[in-house]
């Protein structure tokens, strides 16, 4: 199953929790704002992506599927 990810960059506070727990899917730009490396990561990344979304303190990561 593949997950699709939406990030809301205007809500992102640059906390970096996402890149800390799922560094293959999320990166940060120079201002710390989330950069999505992969919009539909493979199944092996699903649990870390879900954890990233739930840990994001700005609730800026939305998952579909």
């Amino acid at each position: 199953m593949s997950l699709s990810i939406l990030v809301n960059t205007s809500a992102c506070v640059g906390a970096g929790q996402c890149a800390l727990v799922a560094g293959e899917v999320f990166e940060q730009d120079d201002d710390g704002i989330v950069v999505l490396l992969e919009e539909s990561p493979g199944g092996s990344q699903e649990s870390s992506v879900r954890r990233a979304a739930s840990l994001c303190p700005a609730r800026a990561i939305e998952l579909r599927g």
């Binding site: 640059g14 906390a15 970096g16 890149a19 800390l20 940060q28 730009d29 120079d30 201002d31 710390g32």
Partner: peptide, 8 residues
């Protein structure tokens, strides 16, 4: 922020 995360 990025360097902060790297340090973490």
């Amino acid at each position: 922020p990025r360097e902060f995360r790297q340090a973490r």
